[in-house]
Each structure stands twice: as C-alpha cells, then as structure tokens.
Design a protein around this nucleic acid. Structure first.
Lengths: 367, 367
DNA sequence: ATGAAAGCGCTAACAG
DNA sequence: CTGTTAGCGCTTTCAT
C-alpha cells in the first residue's frame, strides 16, 4: 500500500541498506548517492514505517501518559509540555485518561504493555502499586508525579518551599486562622501538600486547626462548596490555602455571593499556578508548580541519557507567585457582614450548623 | 527482553502458529490446547507485540487525534469520549495538540504518517487542505470536525437546528437586538455557526445588525472582553448568543461587574453544552453539541464497518438546552444602570459597590 | 487440527 | 563505501 524502502532502493538502483543508512544519517554514505536517495524519497512521498523500525530496534519510541482526567488545566498544561518535549525527541504520546476503577487501571496498563511503550508517566493516580509493578517488572521506566513515592522513579516535588513562602506571607499579613482546602487525602498529591502545610505551620510554631481543613473536589464546584462550609464557622478563617487553582477559583467566585470580598475579607492562595490564574478577578496568588519543569523532569526520568533511569532524583521546586488575592488581615480579624450570608446555589439545603471538621467526608461531588 | 510468542510455543510444546491462533480466537484450535496456551500466557505474563502484529497485518490500530489546544473543555470532553470508543474497539490514540503554524502542521502530519495511523480525527483546524491532502493521497480516512467541509470525510454538523431553537426562544422572549459573539471567522467552526445564525434570523425576517457581531477569543477572557465592548453601545443588545460556552462563561462572569444582571438585563446563550454549563451561576442555557455523539460519528467515519469510509454522512444534531440565563426582555428594552459601568477588571480594578443579586454573579471566577 | 515456512519493513552484521 | 543476508515477533498460506 504505502511506499516502502525497497521501492526507494529500486528507484535509486541501490540496496535497501544504503537507503536505510542514508535516512539514519550514517556518515559513510557517499553524498551523491545520498542526494539521489533523498530525491527519490521526496518524489515518492516515502515515510519510514515506525512499526518496522520499532520491531528491529526493540524501541517503540512511544511514551505512555496516564492522567486521571482532562478537566484540570494543570494536567492539560502538563500534557502540552510533555508532548512538546516528547515530540522534539522523536517520541510519540499514548494518552490514557480513563483510569479510575482498578479494573480500568488494568486495561490501561495492558494497553501500554502491548504497545511496548518505552516509558510511562503517571499523574496523581492511586493506588500506585498495581500500576507501577507491571512496568517495573519489565524494566520499563515509570515517572510518578505525585510526591508520595520519593525514591525510585517518583519525581521528587519540593512542596515545602512554595508552601513555606505562602504560609509566611500570610502570617506576615497578620493571619493566624488559616484554612486549608484540599482534595481528599486519598490522593497522594493532596496528602503531600497537606503535610507540607502542616510542617510549615509547625516550623513557626503555629497551630493548625483541624476544623479548618476542608476537603473539596478538585474543581471550581469544590471551592464553592468549601466557602459555603467555612462561612458557617463562628470563628471563621481570614485566609485560605487551596491545593489547586481550580479550587481557589471556585472560592473566588463564590465568596462575593456570601458577602465576602477578596482579598479584604479573605485572603486566598491557590496551588499550581495554571495559566488562568493570571486572569482571575482579582488575579490569583498561587503556589507555583511549573508544569513545564515537571514535564521536563518526567521526560528525563524516562528517557534521560545522563543516568540509568532508575536513580533519578530530579527535584522540582515550588515557588510563590504573588498576585492580588491576599491582603493584611482586617483589624478585628473578623468582619461584620453587610448582608446575611446567602445560601449557596449549590447547596439546596440550608447548612444549619453544618460543621464539618478535619478530614471528615467532603462535600458531595457535583460534577 | 519481553517474553514473546515463541517462548509460549516452547513452554506449551506447540508451534507459534497454534499459539497465534489461540490468541486470535480461531475456532479450529482444540480447547484443551487452548487452555494450555492461556495458562502459559498467564504464567509468563505474555503480551502480544502490537508492533509486529501491525507490521504483518498492515493495520496499526492507531488513530491520530489533532486538536488545536487542550484548554477548551469541549475538546477535552470530545477526547475523553473518543478515547473511550477507540479503546473499546482496540484502537489506541496518538494525540497531537500542537498544530498552529503551518510548519508545525507538517510535523504533525508527518508524525501520523510515520506511525501509520489507520485514521485521523481533526478538530477545528485551519487551513484544512495541507493537513487533509497527505492523508487522502494515502487513502487514510480523515474525520474533520468543523462543519465547513460537508462532503467527504467532514462530519456533517447540523448547526441550524439548535441555533433556530435558540433564536426563536430569544425572539419569543421579545428580544430583537441579539448580539453574536464568535471566535474569529477564520475558524471554520465559528464561521459555520455564524452562517447558521444569519440563516435563522433571516428565516423569521429579522435583521442581523453587523455591529452586534463581536469577535472574541475562545476563552473566558474573550467573553469578558466582549461584554466590555457591547456595553459601550448606546443601543445595547438585550440578548446574546456565543459560539462557545467558554465565552458565555466569561460573559456571565463579567456582566455583574458592569452592572448587568443575568438574565434580567441580558439573556445569554452558550454553545456546546460542556459539562460545566450546568454549574455556572445562573446555570447556562446552551446550544448542545453532544461531544459523545460527535466522537461516535468521528469514530464511525474512520473505522465504521457499515460503509467504505468515504461517503459517510453522519449528521450530528444540535439542540437547545434550556437553563436559567435567558428571560423576557425588559419592557423598556433598555435599562438604566444602577451604577455607571466600570472598567473591566481585565484592567485590574477593585469591585467597589459590588452589587450582586440573589442568584446571580458569575460562576467562574474568571478564568 | 496442527506445524513449517514465508514474509511484513526495516536495520545490523558481515562480506566484498 | 555498498550489497547480501539474517532476523525482530507475529500472522498466514500451504501442507500434513
């Protein structure tokens, strides 16, 4: 069907080997012949068959990419960068976005294995073992982007650096009741962020109030719910750190509905610094986790030439990107509502004394 | 390295042929032997090498998917469905999200060709010719999701049906000055939507006012800008149709800042009906273009067994999904602003006198 | 019903 | 510097 190497060989009256050598830039090919080959390739519109190449070389130049969902800009931004790097290095991406049930995890793993991927990047997925093991067994490099697996293959993300900056920024602004809105602690990435938060608070000898930890979906709805919850506290927080910008955006959106102005009444810090963070209103201060760096680390962990792909210790740092959603805590620490807080449109039920504490069950998902 | 078919053959004391037949479910294999084969496969953890299979069969079972960007939920939702269907049919996805410059288009096409994709789905990309031709030449099915190429391979999207419903809904609500916010007409999909709008207006003998057609980025920022523009008109529109929900969400978000309540002061209709539309505030009325149906049509156009893959005429319909962002036009047709329109927050500005009403205010904190 | 052998398109030894 | 040959892992005639 498609034109193959032999047709080029025939047309140039050379052997397939020479054509192959030309294509692969083997220097011993006579320039004149090379020219002939390239011209024939051009004329016939020949593209080397990657399948065949993969078969003989044992390398598919295919990279698996497993993501929990495509709705989060953090993921898509990561994908974009990862694709870019991969393609620049002649790799191709095999995308799998449907890995929720343990059963579907198996299917995904199987797909990757059958296609003989040269490596797999996995974002924020749990449980880790069933997905990591089959690859490890076959010595296929895996890059886990979570922060929980520190040692082998896991990309080391330094959450504390940015978190420390964030916490200290808030404290310098006289905030002491700082809420923490995170995804379920079942998600390793969220757990890691919470740990960093706790550690940073402890460093400066501040209490973390368990009742100020609210669990939310990783979505704007999640953030909106969180506000609804926090507002119900008698002694409500004056500042709030979210484990994702998406959640923070929900907070930004819902707060005014509840009579809370940002940043005057509530300082908000997001996480990830997705591109949109710059355009929220007000522009969102966020703990930056560079998606580009992360992508690069992941790629290096998988295909890095420097090391044996197992003992990679690429740490990617978080920073604080200061914008406009934080301000000094209002003198009273509290503020009288202009108007009574309104019902959240998301919550049909009035939340009478709906006090949720610690990491008890989060708000119902509404996506 | 990885275990191959011969090792299974050896272990079962059978020939590779029999193993192959077993795997492929050829009915002539003796059940007992089949059992033996499956057990060995299980034990050794064997996965057939897709590369080799592809080589001999001439089918890669790889589908190319070219999207302009990953930030639009409409696209990601489409991808999700498309992946689902593809995987269910033992196909794999090759994702390309970087196709802007003509040069990068060439690279993308090349990538797909080298990997010998069995088909390519392309969303909303321009120009069409350079990307479509190389595939056509090689008889690789292409599914263009734009609406502009009606005939061969282009998925036929019936924009008019939903648009007609939308226009008539608005008119029944006494709106006559209906604005149209679209992406650049360079984008074929946007152009198609605009045509549908014009046609539907003409049907009921209504004028479309050229000055009420505003062009915006396909993003929330785009919608926010559009509001800023429309508000400046002395005779401003009372209703507005956007070519994407993302734009509509921007409108929802920005309008209150400009002293406009939705739907009382401005009826808004989006396009696509992305999952988030349900959760905006107020919930967004939208012209539904089912991403699932679209994905299915695309897949059928590429791999459909029914026809010869060229003369597909899968029409997918648009509908109107009525929610809460439209209401009857205010009697005066115009409304006096409570407060003078403010600068768009796009030029940062505090929202003083943030007059927000019951259920309104933008959902999204403004991507 | 099963096995032997050829070949998919390409690259890598080994000759020349 | 180029051509010949073998083989990557699998499917598929063609025999048996």
């Amino acid at each position: 069907m498609a034109v193959n190497i032999n047709q080029i060989a025939q047309k140039t009256r050379l052997s397939a080997a020479t054509v192959s050598r030309t294509i692969n830039g083997v220097p011993t090919v006579h320039p004149v012949l090379a020219r002939r080959v390239w011209r024939a390739i051009e004329e016939l519109g020949y593209y080397p068959n990657t399948q065949a190449r993969a078969l003989v070389s044992g390398k598919s130049r295919l990279l698996g990419l497993i993501v929990p969902d495509l709705t989060n800009p953090f993921f898509t931004e990561f994908i974009r960068h990862f694709e870019q790097i991969a393609v620049n290095n002649e790799y191709e991406l095999l995308l799998a976005s449907t890995a929720h049930s343990p059963e579907s995890i198996n299917k995904v793993v199987r797909r990757m294995l059958e296609r003989r991927v040269d490596g797999v990047a996995v974002i924020a997925l749990e449980p880790e073992e069933p997905i990591i093991t089959p690859f490890r067994d076959r010595k296929i490099p895996v890059a886990f982007l979570t922060g929980s697996i520190a040692g082998e293959g896991g990309i080391q993300i330094n959450y504390e650096h940015g978190m420390r900056l964030a916490v200290q920024h808030l404290v310098a602004l006289r905030h002491s009741r700082i809420a923490f809105v995170s995804e379920s602690p079942d998600i390793p990435m969220a757990r890691a962020k919470k740990c960093a938060f706790d550690a940073c608070m402890k460093e400066i000898e501040l209490d973390v109030h368990p009742e100020l930890h609210v669990v939310a979906d990783n979505s704007m709805q999640g953030g909106m719910h969180a506000v609804a919850q926090l507002i119900s506290f008698s002694d409500r927080p004056t500042a709030l750190i979210c484990t994702s910008d998406l959640i923070a955006m929900g907070v930004l959106c819902e707060s005014p509905m509840q009579g809370l102005f940002i940043p005057e009444d509530l300082s908000v810090i997001g996480f990830d610094d997705i591109p949109q963070a710059e355009f929220t209103n007000p522009p969102l201060t966020s703990i930056r986790l560079s998606q580009a760096e992360l992508a690069e680390s992941a790629f290096n962990a998988l295909c890095g030439k420097t090391e044996s792909a197992t003992s990679h210790r690429c740490a990617v740092f978080t920073e604080l990107r200061l914008r406009k959603t934080t301000s000094i805590a209002s003198p009273a620490g509290q503020r009288i509502f202009k108007s009574p807080p309104k019902k959240s449109p998301l919550q049909p039920q009035p939340h009478l004394g709906n006090v949720r504490r610690g990491n008890s069950s989060g708000p119902a998902s509404c996506t």
